[in-house]
């Protein structure tokens, strides 16, 4: 697959070298770089589906990317529910796809 990273840019310049870290999504390891959000790191690895709708099981991914729509919500380190687009990566971060029973509060 062609890289999803924007390495070179005519106006913004080339991407700075950043430190690589490993995050896990549903148990699978992915390489991310410091400064990435969980959403951008997974997209860069070709992962678009972040959860399935609680009732209809229709697949969902990033929609607004700035925290408004809550479509990208995931579970972080087995407890907290967070928006993948507003969560920066850390080495060893363990992210799981979320399927909450209908009506449960997050």
């Amino acid at each position: 697959m062609k890289s999803m990273r924007v390495q070179e840019h005519p106006i913004l310049g080339n991407s700075e070298k950043k430190e690589a870290v490993t995050i896990y999504f549903d148990g699978k390891p992915y390489t991310a770089y410091t400064g990435d959000t969980v959403a951008s790191a997974l997209l860069a690895s070709g992962v678009r589906t972040l959860r399935k709708h609680e009732e209809t099981a229709s697949p969902r991914g990033i929609y607004c990317n700035i925290g408004h729509c809550f479509e990208c919500r995931v579970q972080l380190n087995g407890s907290e529910t967070v928006r993948a687009c507003l969560t920066t990566v850390a080495d060893g971060m363990y992210v799981t796809s979320l399927t909450l029973p209908k009506g449960a509060s997050i």
Binding site: Y63, C64, H68, C69, F70, E71, R73, I106
Partner: peptide
């Protein structure tokens, strides 16, 4: 009435 509070 969902998670986004109707914002979308």
């Amino acid at each position: 009435m969902g998670s986004c509070g109707g914002r979308t």
